[in-house]
Design a protein around this nucleic acid. Structure first.
Ligand SMILES: NC(=O)c1ccc[n+]([C@@H]2O[C@H](COP(=O)([O-])OP(=O)(O)OC[C@H]3O[C@@H](n4cnc5c(N)ncnc54)[C@H](O)[C@@H]3O)[C@@H](O)[C@H]2O)c1
Ligand SMILES: NC(=O)c1ccc[n+]([C@@H]2O[C@H](COP(=O)([O-])OP(=O)(O)OC[C@H]3O[C@@H](n4cnc5c(N)ncnc54)[C@H](O)[C@@H]3O)[C@@H](O)[C@H]2O)c1
Lengths: 260, 260
DNA sequence: AGGCGCTTGTGAACGGGTGCACAAATCGCG
DNA sequence: CGCGATTTGTGCACCCGTTCACAAGCGCCT
C-alpha cells in the first residue's frame, strides 16, 4: 500500500520543476474554501495543489529572512528571487491562499508569514519523535533548525540498551518499547526515522500503531503504510546518483558521446 | 540565475506523482540515442525524462536488494512494488533505456543493474568533496551508504582551524582554502555542502571556481550558480513542514474545518 | 507443433503544473 | 483629481508526466 514521494530537488537553470504531483489519496480534499475567504483568515482551509504546498516552506523561509532584514513588503519578483522560483509561479501559489498582496505595491510580509504558517499548521509548535539515535540521529537531535522552524523534538528512541538513558540536548533517550506510551502522552503525530533500513519497517509499524500519522524516513528503503499515513523520504545516495547522472550526461556531451 | 529543485518526497497513498518538470537549461539534450541502441550498450546515451532519472536510483536499490536475495529476474509488478511505484510507470521508465525485459518472463536483474549504473554514471566510483565538518558533516563523513552506492569521499573541508587536521574515517580535514588545489588533483566534480547557510553561497562559489559542477546543498538557502552547475537541495525543515501541512489538513477534516 | 497464459512495451487519453501575457487594481505625483 | 507607473491576479495554451488498456511477444506445457 502507499508509495513514498521521491525527493526531487533540482537541477540548475531555467525554471526548476519540482515536487511530484497527484498522490490520489493524499489529494487535498474535494473543494473547500473560496466562499468564507475574506476576513475569516482563521479556519479557512483552501484546496492547495501539492506542488504549491511543497513550495510554501521555501517562501516562508525567504519571508522570515526578509522580515529579519527589516523589510515590510516584497514584490512577487523579489520574493520569487529569494525563494528561487519564477514570479508568475509565486503569484499563482499565493493567490491560492487568498492573497495578501496589493497591486502596485507587493505583499505585506508579516500577515503573509502568518497565513503561510497557519496553512502549514505551524501555529503551535509540533511535537516530533526521533527514532534511531546513531550517527545521523545525533546530528538531527542537535539540529537547531528543527526548533527554529516550528518543531520540537519531544522524544528520542533507540533499541540499543547502551544508548538508552543517554542525554542529548536535554532529552533522555528512551527505549523503543516505550514508544506507544510516550507518543500518546506527548501527542506526537510526526516521527523522524533514522534507524538502519533493516529495522525501518518494523519501527514504522510501531510508530503507526502508537498513533503517528506522518513519517520522515532517512532509511534507504520503501515503507509500507496505510493510506492515512504520510511518508516522505530523504535519501542522500539517491540525490548523489541523480547528480551523477547529470555529470555523466555533461561529459557525454563533450566527449564523443552524442551531440551537445 | 538558476533555481534549486525542491526536495519533494512523498505522501502516502495512491500513485505518487513525482518530479517537477521542465528545467529548460538542464533539459537533457535534444534527441539522441534510439538508433545505435541494440548491442551497443556502451556509449548509448538516451534522452531520459527528468522524472524517470529521479526514479532510477530507487529501481537500482531495489534491484541490488533482489540480486542479494538470490533472484535472477523480476516482473515489472515485482520491481514496481519493491521500488514503491506503479508497474506501468516502471515499464515506461525502463523502456526508455532500451529495455532488458522479456515478455512473459520479466527483467533480467543483472544486466538491468548494469544498464542503470551505466546511465547514472556509476561505472567508476565518483569522487565527492564534503564541506563543513560540523554536526551533520560528521555523520555524513561516516556514512557507509556513501561508499556502498557508488561514491567515494575524496576530501573533507572546513573553515574552522580547530577542525582542520582532524582525522575522520581515514581522511584528514583540510582547510577550505585548499579547495582549488585538492578538487583539481582529485578530479572532484560533486560536492556536498554542510556549512551554515550564511557561508553556503561563498563556499559554493569557491567550489564552482575550483571546477565542481554538481552540489548537494544541506544548508537552508537558495544558491545562485551558473547554468552549467546542478544543485540539489535537502532541507529537513521543509520536509517536516510539508508533513505538518498534511497533519493540519487531516485534523481540519475531522474537526469542523471543512468537509472531509 | 500448437495453443495458452503471462508479461512486456506502448498508443492514447487525461490531469496537473508552468509560464506567458494582459487586464485590473492601487499608489504617488503633479 | 486624473494620469502614469507599477505590480498583482489570472485566463489560456502548452508541456510533462501519469495511467489505462491492449496488442505483441515469449515460454511452457501438452
Ligand atoms: N549517517 C548518515 O549521514 C546518513 C545519511 C543518509 C542516510 N542515512 C541513513 O540513516 C539511517 C541511520 O544511519 P546512521 O549512520 O545513523 O546509522 P547508525 O547505525 O549509526 O544508527 C542507527 C541507530 O538506530 C538504532 N536502531 C537499530 N534498530 C533499531 C530499532 N529497531 N529501533 C530503534 N532504534 C534502532 C541503532 O541502535 C543505532 O543507534 C540509516 O538507514 C542510514 O542509511 C544515514
Ligand atoms: N545538523 C543537522 O541535523 C542538520 C539537518 C539539516 C540541515 N542542516 C544544515 O546543515 C548545515 C550544517 O549543520 P550543522 O548542524 O552541521 O552545523 P555546524 O555548525 O555543526 O557545522 C557547520 C560546519 O561548517 C563549518 N564552516 C562554517 N563556515 C565555513 C566555511 N566558510 N567554509 C567551510 N566550512 C565552514 C563550521 O566550522 C562547522 O564545522 C547547516 O546549514 C544546517 O542548517 C543540519
Amino acid at each position: 500500500m502507499s508509495q513514498q514521494r521521491n525527493g526531487s530537488t533540482s537541477g540548475s537553470n531555467g525554471s526548476g520543476p519540482n515536487g511530484r504531483a497527484a498522490v490520489v489519496g493524499v489529494s487535498l480534499n474535494g473543494d473547500a474554501g473560496v466562499e468564507l475567504k475574506a476576513g475569516v483568515s482563521e479556519s479557512f482551509f483552501p484546496d492547495l495543489p501539492e506542488a504549491t504546498v511543497a513550495r510554501l516552506p521555501e517562501y516562508l523561509r525567504a519571508l522570515h529572512h526578509l522580515a529579519d532584514t527589516g523589510h515590510d513588503t516584497v514584490s512577487s519578483e523579489g520574493l520569487a528571487n529569494a525563494a528561487g522560483v519564477n514570479s508568475a509561479k509565486l503569484r499563482k501559489d499565493l493567490s491560492h491562499l487568498g492573497s495578501y498582496g496589493t497591486r502596485g505595491v507587493g505583499y505585506d510580509i508579516s500577515p503573509l508569514i502568518g497565513q503561510i504558517e497557519y496553512i502549514l499548521g505551524l501555529t503551535s509548535r509540533r511535537a516530533v519523535a526521533l527514532v534511531g539515535v546513531g550517527n545521523l540521529g545525533h546530528a538531527l537531535a542537535g539540529y537547531a533548525g528543527f526548533t527554529s522552524r516550528g518543531f520540537r523534538i519531544a522524544a528520542l528512541f533507540d533499541a540499543d540498551p547502551s544508548r538508552v538513558g543517554e542525554r542529548i540536548n536535554g532529552l533522555v533517550v528512551k527505549h523503543i518499547n516505550e514508544i506507544a506510551v510516550i507518543v500518546k502522552a506527548e501527542s506526537i503525530s510526526i516521527a523522524v526515522l533514522a534507524t538502519p533500513a533493516s529495522a525501518a519497517q518494523s519501527v514504522a509499524d510501531q510508530l503507526i500503531n502508537a498513533g503517528v500519522t506522518s513519517i520522515l524516513n532517512f532509511a534507504p528503503c520503501v515503507l509500507s503504510v496505510p493510506d492515512r499515513v504520510d511518508v516522505r523520504k530523504v535519501d542522500l545516495a539517491i540525490e548523489l546518483q541523480i547528480l551523477s547522472f547529470h555529470e555523466h550526461r555533461k561529459s557525454a556531451r563533450i566527449n564523443g558521446g552524442l551531440r551537445g
